[in-house]
Simulated scan of single mutants.
Amino acid sequence: MGLNAVRVLSLISLILVFSSTILVMVTNIKAVNSFEANRGGDNTTMVDCDYIAGSTVPNQPAGVFWAVVASLLIIFQTIILFLSECSWPMTFFDRFFPVLGTKFGLGPLGIFQCLISTQILSHHVDDFTLVSAFFLFALGCLNMLLGLIFRESAKPKRSITSWRAEAKGILPTTSDQRPVFVNATPIVSSVFSQEKGQQVHVSHETVTDAHSFRSTEKAGYGFGRQGEKAAGLRGFILQKPEESLPRYASPPPPRAATVSRSPSSVSSSSSFYADERPPSMPVPHAAETHAAAPAFRSSPTSI
């Protein structure tokens, strides 16, 4: 709230300087017109003076031009500083004028305000312009002091839009930039604590091992077994990705089909089976003939 109060005062001082500069420019033009009108007269005192009477215009070649340009530059600078204090359009300042953007504090703003006020106070001006320039110089010094105190965090702290965004946001604005290691202290405590409120005692040897792994002698273990052990002693575990096939992987090929042949009865009239018994021997039974008959197997070339 204090930073916003200083910003309001800074806006008021810029408005006063803007209006007083316009008043000074109008006064200078009127004084120059009066000077040019009295140039051909007998009054030679006004011709030999360093400044035109009643103005801040120097009596020299192109003095009127540079006086008007100086007033226009002050007006332009006050407009730029006013927009910077209003934080609009901040994307323009972040890209084309970073010192007045969000990544810088209030120090550059105070420097610009002091430069404008000293430029005005270095001339003889009326009371309204004098008070406005003094007010702007005081605010410039205060902004430089606040810039030294808060540095680049001053503008985000006084930004009303950032307050509204944080109030409406559901998820936290900060992001975890840590690597794939996660804190395993709650998991270890839940595993080793059997009852609620039970404390987990760590032996002196475990602490000694953890400190030993921090030494430079064992810093080259990397992600091996010793590295995982050191990470576990410090309270971290390594998340392993789930095993899965890529989307473009083809399905596994089907198993080769086996060719089977149904059992068939052996015919006695087949050319592969010849009855070479003498006529006197009895004909065996059909079951015995089937058991004793040789099995027929087809060769791979026939398939």
Rank of each mutant, 00 (worst) to 15 (best):
H124A: 08
L100P: 02
L171R: 08
K196Q: 04
A210K: 08
P108C: 08
V68H: 04
L245S: 09
V99F: 11
P61Y: 03
V69D: 09
F134S: 06
T289F: 15
S262M: 14
I52P: 02
E85P: 00
R234L: 07
A62H: 09
K157T: 07
I52L: 12
S244H: 11
P156W: 03
C114D: 04
F96H: 08
A53C: 06
K103V: 04
L81E: 07
T216W: 13
G110T: 12
F112H: 14
W66R: 08
R151T: 12
H204K: 10
P284D: 12
I15L: 11
L109Q: 13
K218N: 06
L146E: 02
R151W: 10
A256C: 02
T208R: 11
N28I: 01
F65N: 01
G224M: 05
G235A: 15
L238P: 01
A249C: 12
F65L: 05
A5G: 10
T21M: 07
G169W: 04
S193D: 01
S55T: 08
G222Y: 03
P284R: 08
I15Y: 12
R247Q: 08
S269Q: 09
A154G: 01
T173M: 09
S212Q: 09
T208I: 06
V182H: 10
S267F: 00
R95Q: 13
A257Y: 02
T118S: 14
E217G: 02
R234Y: 09
I160L: 03
L238A: 09
V24K: 13
L11S: 14
F181T: 12
D94E: 11
A165M: 11
D126T: 01
D42A: 14
R7W: 01
P251A: 01
Y248C: 02
G147I: 08
I12D: 10
P58Q: 05
A31P: 11
F35V: 02
S212M: 12
V47T: 05
L72E: 14
T258L: 10
P278Y: 15
F82Q: 01
G107L: 11
G110H: 04
L83P: 00
A62P: 00
S250R: 08
F35Y: 15
P284K: 05
F82D: 00
D50V: 11
L72Y: 06
S215E: 06
F104N: 09
F112D: 03
C86V: 13
N183V: 13
L73M: 13
I52R: 07
E195T: 07
G140N: 02
T185G: 02
E242F: 04
L171W: 13
A230V: 05
K155L: 05
S268C: 09
P282K: 15
G101N: 01
I12V: 12
R214M: 12
N183A: 01
C114R: 11
S212R: 14
V131D: 05
V99P: 03
R164H: 01
S271C: 07
S10C: 10
R255P: 14
T102I: 04
E288D: 15
I74A: 09
A230T: 02
V259M: 09
V200D: 04
S132N: 12
I116A: 01
T91K: 03
P61R: 05
F35G: 02
F18V: 00
A167E: 03
I79P: 00
V57G: 03
L145Y: 06
V266K: 12
S19Y: 05
